[in-house]
């Protein structure tokens, strides 16, 4: 169902040029009394990779987790402002979080495969969303494993435990698991921070590949990585959005002094 609804990109559909897929207006987030995000306003485009960068504790992961409402799981979190996806306020009272998360997938910093077989890991999400038929399941699982460039490595041991995979393979399995249910947006929270350089390269290649089909928002610590894979970059500092723009501009000619200091490695 979801795949038939994938809209033409903003570039090919001039009527939609003004409306971004994700619109954040004046968003603030509080943990109890502390204001962790301060009046963030930003618009993210479809089928692009957007990178959130900034020093630790700057709120970039928190903002990412607002996009599929994972922050709901934490007690004491309060949100003000507006966050729209596809024109719909995702914090409206009648929004079903489950349905939202199905459309906004997520890959975590620490790879977290279920302690099940490789096959079952990918099948889990599919079964949740009503794919019961064995041959449909097989096809979708193969497709998503292919897409995440893991198929050749695991096709002979689909039914052995996912915990036996290497760190990089586990992370790609988590990506396969996320894309299997065909979300429209994929959130990635420092997906390569725990991986070695070779595994990191593979994950980065994968992200560039996935861009053709998905809108990707990625949080990263690694400036080179942001420069390599993202189209737009947002720089956060102490809960504020300092600068947002095309990646090339942010890295070569930032408007703000603090952005320049950060991307040139003077602090952070």
């Amino acid at each position: 169902m979801a795949e038939t609804l994938i809209a033409p990109t903003a570039a090919t559909n001039p009527a939609n040029a003004a409306a971004s897929l994700i619109e954040i207006e004046n968003l603030s987030l509080y943990y109890g009394a502390t204001k962790a995000l301060k009046n963030i306003s930003v618009k993210l485009e479809e089928k692009l990779v957007t990178a959130f960068i900034g020093p630790s504790g700057c709120g970039k992961s928190t903002l990412l987790r607002c996009l599929n409402r994972m922050n709901d799981l934490i007690d004491n979190v309060r949100i003000e402002g507006l966050m729209k996806i596809g024109g719909h306020d995702i914090y409206a009272a009648d929004v079903d979080v489950i349905e939202l998360r199905k459309r906004v997938g997520m890959v975590f910093q620490k790879s977290n495969p279920f302690p099940k077989s490789i096959y079952e890991n990918v099948a889990y999400g599919l079964r949740l969303h009503g794919v019961k038929n064995k041959s449909d399941l097989d096809a979708r699982i193969e497709q998503s494993l292919q897409q995440s460039a893991l198929w050749d490595e695991v096709k002979d041991r689909l039914h052995s435990s996912a915990l036996g995979l290497s760190g990089g393979q586990q992370q790609r399995l988590c990506i396969a698991r996320a894309i299997a249910i065909k979300p429209e947006i994929i959130l990635m929270d420092e997906p390569a921070s725990a991986l070695d350089p070779i595994a990191t390269t593979r994950v980065e290649d994968l992200i560039l590949d996935l861009k053709k089909e998905f809108t990707i928002v990625i949080v990263t610590h690694n400036m080179q990585q942001a420069a390599r894979i993202s189209d737009q970059t947002a720089f956060f500092y102490l809960g504020e959005l300092i600068e947002f723009g095309a990646t090339g501009k942010i890295f070569t000619n930032p408007a703000q002094k603090r952005t320049e200091d950060y991307v040139s490695g003077r602090f952070g």
Binding site: A2, L5, I6, A7, P8, N13, A15, N16, A18, A19, L21, I85, G86, G87, H88, I90, A92, D94, V95, D96, E99, L100, R103, E184
Partner: peptide, 15 residues
């Protein structure tokens, strides 16, 4: 601005 098919897709979250 949002009368394209995309908005129908995201309608689904209002369950």
């Amino acid at each position: 601005n949002n009368e394209s098919r995309r908005s129908h897709g995201w309608m689904g979250i209002h369950r």
